[in-house]
Design a protein around this nucleic acid. Structure first.
Lengths: 353, 353
DNA sequence: CACTCACGTGGATACGTTTTCAAGCATCTC
DNA sequence: GAGATGCTTGAAAACGTATCCACGTGAGTG
């Protein structure tokens, strides 16, 4: 276990000052002669600059943080892979945390990242704007992915919020009352995705369409309400908390309380999974008895029988773009990137029976 | 964007020296009086010790590294969740990397971690012992999870290697020629798991059983060979490279070249997915035409129809245990933890037609 | 009372890097 | 030829912490 060479060792061995070594290795100016010698010595000593010294000096840790709700959810796995791909190509480390969709855990993780002086963060937010205020106040460069945090409690108004979210999707500023956080984001075009799904089901003759949502699906719910048109049958909009159990309970409860529904839109792959399971348990055939569209395309969607019709959103791309955004934090950044979704018709939707 | 308070600020505000503050906050000795005052001042200033300074001083980054092949693979998602759960309860950061099962990328990531002075690492190794030598030589505390790296090329002897692996599973030292790496590990009892699967299929009357493997499945293959008994029909043992495409190609090729096989054991969930897909594409009915057992239990195994019979391995536990091991790196650590597997019979296996 | 011992404390140092600053030197311009 | 200009260079100062060491004080012991 040999100890690593420091910049000082290189400087001595090359007969120059440490400043020169640092300059050469950071791409600063130096005469070709010394540059060559420093490079040679560094290679020969197998010198690798210590991130520790650099970080302390610049008072910031390189790389970026990444906060997702659950790595067991394939969609977030895809998103994480996208982030890691971008980080790898930049040679930057990624410190990751799993929030379990719990604002409290999220807060703790933010605190931990602050302690580490990680000043760039990509997050699928669980908490509301209030949870995130400390991070941006501390000067973190934050990029939200997949969803936006809810507005702070005092100004949370279901009506207005829904309108805001929809307007945001259109790239409009929602209102004179400023948005709580000014943080760029990379999200899918949930409104178009949900609308396409609902229209597709409508075209098949479905009238009683349910929505199965989870945490962070506010924009999708709003889009669903809009696509279905008023008045919305509130019993047909149900939520799970994010765990598989709760998703199953929600799906099962929905099917039992409303046997008259003929189609359901699942707001995420965990909910879609729950819907398939619950339907089977209740002897509902897909798509004969009930049609199903799932948000998120995941490899196993094709394995179900029938294969699941889905609204695909580019998880990997979302991660990659978010990482790009957080890295190029200099210059003007777009306030929000909206990626397209795609309806992939497989076999889980049929005409209304 | 206010700047953070440093230990110096706290010391001045409390009228003590920085050394005292450091001691109080690190649990060192101090008089109750000063301790109380320091704590109060620290809280009032909202002081959080900077990990940067501490890291540089102790010449090591806290927390741990985590290297997995692919976060899109649900099993590794589970494993990562286990690691994160343990790390969170210890308040330690985790820097993650995805290797794509590529030794070269793995090497680069190890280099990056070294540069960050991360000295504790949990890895699902892609490269062989040679790839890992630099890490342990640099003094890293490494724990392997899910699999062990292959022995270095020069001494790689298929026969001997297989024997070694099997002996290792029994907890025996393989040979007088020492093992290349002395690194603790947390793995599933692949031998028992595969043996159970093969015996189960045998009991259903199957004789031509194939194995569909991927990278890192050496121990599983060896166990398969042992369970099937010599002579092994080599055409029935095929491999993918880790990507979904290659897994599909391997499965499809297997089914086409050997229509006489009646059962297949997939060495991992990606391979299982590929097998289901390929079988369907070729109009092979499961389990009527071909029985299927998949290694790894994943939520969607239950969604297939028929639901997949699987050998479950505790991915989350493996991650948690590995993290525990790497954290309690003091004291004597067990050389290897072997976790039990469980055959979960669902509907993808039937009697030989 | 002198001496030791234990303990609480603060000053100083080191960790490895980047960056500022001024100095040295060669070249160019008037 | 004198002054100005540009480039290369190294010494030194941070960054925020943990820890070594020496100092003082109080209690306990002979």
């Amino acid at each position: 276990m040999e100890k690593r060479a420091t910049i000082k060792d290189v400087a001595e061995a090359a007969g120059v000052g440490v400043a020169t070594v640092s300059r050469v290795l950071s791409g600063g100016s130096a005469s070709p002669r010394t540059r060559e010698r420093v490079l040679a010595v560094a290679a020969q000593l197998d010198y690798r600059p210590s991130a520790l010294g650099r970080n302390l000096r610049q008072r910031r840790t390189g790389g970026m943080g990444l906060l997702v709700p659950d790595l067991t959810d394939t969609f977030y796995g895809q998103l994480a892979e996208g982030v890691l791909a971008c980080a790898r190509s930049a040679g930057e480390p990624v410190v990751i945390g799993s929030t379990g969709d719990d604002p409290e855990q999220e807060s703790e993780l933010i605190g931990m990242l602050l302690e580490q002086s990680v000043d760039r963060l990509i997050a699928v937010p669980a908490g509301d704007a209030e949870t995130w205020a400390p991070a941006v106040r501390a000067g973190m460069t934050v990029v939200f992915a997949d969803r936006l945090p809810a507005p702070p409690a005092e100004e949370r108004d279901p009506q207005a919020a829904a309108v805001d979210d929809l307007m945001l999707l259109d790239g409009l500023s929602p209102a004179p009352r400023a948005r709580p956080l000014d943080v760029p984001s990379v999200v899918a075009d949930d409104r178009a995705g949900i609308r396409t799904a609902v229209r597709y089901l409508r075209g098949l003759g479905h009238r009683r369409i349910a929505f199965l949502g989870g945490p962070g699906h506010d924009r999708r719910v709003a889009a669903f309400r809009e696509a279905v048109g008023a008045p919305v049958d509130e019993e047909l909009v149900v939520f799970g908390t994010g765990s598989r159990d709760s998703a199953y309970a929600a799906a099962s409860g929905l099917f039992q309380s409303r046997p008259d529904l003929s189609a359901v839109v699942a707001g995420g792959n965990v909910l879609g999974e729950a819907a398939v399971l619950a339907a089977r348990e209740l002897d509902l055939r897909v798509p004969r008895d009930v049609s199903l569209i799932m948000y998120d395309d995941v490899p196993w969607a094709e394995l179900c029988s029938p294969p699941l019709t889905v609204v695909a959103q580019p998880g990997r791309d979302m991660g990659y773009r978010a990482a790009e955004l957080v890295l190029r934090s200099g210059g003007r950044r777009p306030r929000g990137v909206v990626l397209p979704t795609e309806l992939i018709v497989r076999g889980s939707c049929g005409p209304r029976r």
